[in-house]
Every structure is written in C-alpha cells, then in structure tokens.
Amino acid sequence: MFKQFNQSNYRAICDELASADADLAHIINTYGYPPLWSRPNTFETLVHIILEQQVSLASALSALNKLREYIQEITPARVLLLTDEEFKACYFSRQKTTYTKHLAGAIISGQINLAELEQLPDEEIRAKLTSLKGIGNWTADVYLMFVLQHADIFPIGDLAAVNALKRVKSLPKETTREELLAVTEQWAPYRTVASMLLWHYYLSAPAHRTPKGGVVEQINK
C-alpha cells in the first residue's frame, strides 16, 4: 500500500529523514521546516499544473486567473463550451488549449475519475494520467506529491529539485539521472518529503533560483 503524509505526521517524517541524513538536517536547522504544500483534487488543479509546464510561473497563474474570471468556475463542462479564440483570450497557447480540452473530455467520458485515483497505487495513477495528451511524468509527479500526498516520489524531471539535490549533496553538474535517483533511494519511503526539504532549500538559499521549472514556486503562488 502506498504511504501518504499529512499535517499530523509531516514534521515527524522530516525529523526521521534529518536523523538519517546530515544534509537534510542542515536544511531544517538553517531554514526551518518546509511548508506542507498541497492542492485540492480537482479538474482546476490539473489545468493549473498543465499551464505550469515549461512557462514562467506568473504567466501560468495569469492564464488560470483569466480563465476563472471568464467562466467563473473551472469545470470540464464549461471548458468544453469555449472556442479556441476564447482560450486564446485567456492566454492559453494552442497546445495547452488542446491539452485542457482533452482532459475535460476524458473526465466527462469517465476515462479519468479523479476521486477513484485517490485509491490507486502510484504507477496505476501515472499510467492513467500519462495516457492523456499533454500529461507527462512531471505533471503526474506534481499531482501525486501535492494533490494526493503520496510520500515516496522524487520528481526527476523538476529542475529546481534536481539542482537543489546537486547543491546539497555537492554533486557535479554532469551527474546522470540514474546517479541522482540512486542518491534519493536512501530517503525511501519518504522521497516526497525529502523533495519538499530540497525545494525549501532552493527557495530559501540566496542566489540559487531559476525563473522556470520549480514546482514549489509554482505550488506556492
């Protein structure tokens, strides 16, 4: 059965990780505990995550707010009534218009049931989500970590998490994906919480931020 974290056990998990890893302990000692970032399990949340793919954080949030302003409530049915021109007026690119419509259709048809996903293991959720046009592993990771709060995910496709890991562990820039994942295995079964500590470091340590690709920055807006 997959492990989850919540407000009641979050700091205890942070402490358990810190007791086994001096680098994570240093993050807590220097910057405190990371916030427990979370999002509701809704269609709007998945649209928001899609908007955040490979763009500035401000533009993703601006598009989401514009869409909400235009249709009041972001639901699959309301989204499917919009024309491409109306999406464009809400700052959606052509690709993300397609992705959002496809997601809305999948939910209305029953291909994806967000409530049912809450009961499934990681890989089944990932398989269902990535079967949809425009949803890849990064989006699935964000959903698993911040919406469903599954405890053992390391988002290898997230630039902020990877860069923070390299800095905290003093790893060379050319460290491979496989080598990075091997390093994170020591944090199982709580790799999500370890990732939150890394994002907390990334946001807190001066002069180490990048303008795109940081999940915590996206979640925190």
Rank of each mutant, 00 (worst) to 15 (best):
D84L: 03
L198P: 01
L181E: 14
E16N: 11
A207C: 02
T210F: 05
A20R: 10
I135Y: 07
A151L: 03
M1S: 12
K133D: 05
Q111E: 15
K96N: 09
N163T: 05
L82P: 04
R177D: 12
I153E: 04
F87W: 05
G110F: 02
E178T: 14
L67M: 12
G214K: 02
R11A: 09
N41E: 09
K169Q: 13
L103R: 07
S56V: 08
L144S: 10
Q4W: 00
P206A: 12
I135W: 05
S204N: 01
Q7K: 13
S38W: 02
Y190D: 11
T98Q: 10
E116Q: 14
D84V: 07
R78M: 09
I108M: 12
L159N: 03
G110M: 03
S62C: 13
Q53V: 13
L103M: 09
A188R: 14
T45Y: 03
G105W: 00
A161F: 06
T30Q: 13
E52Q: 14
I28D: 01
K166D: 02
R39I: 04
T75A: 08
V147L: 05
N9I: 12
E185S: 13
T97S: 14
K66W: 01
T42W: 00
W37R: 15
A127D: 06
N220K: 03
P76V: 12
G214C: 07
I27P: 00
H26V: 03
E116V: 14
K173M: 09
I71F: 08
W37P: 00
F92W: 05
F146Q: 04
V142M: 14
V55C: 15
P35N: 14
I107H: 07
T100C: 11
T176S: 15
R126Q: 11
E116S: 15
C14V: 04
Y91C: 09
A89Y: 02
H102Q: 10
Y91T: 07
Y202D: 13
T192M: 04
N29C: 11
Y143S: 07
I13L: 07
L197D: 01
S62N: 14
P35C: 13
K66I: 08
D23S: 14
L24T: 09
G105T: 11
R126L: 10
T98I: 11
T139N: 04
R11C: 10
P35W: 06
L198W: 01
K88T: 03
T97P: 00
A22R: 02
L180M: 12
L80T: 10
T210H: 06
E16T: 13
N137Q: 08
E69S: 15
G213W: 01
I125N: 04
S19L: 06
P35Q: 14
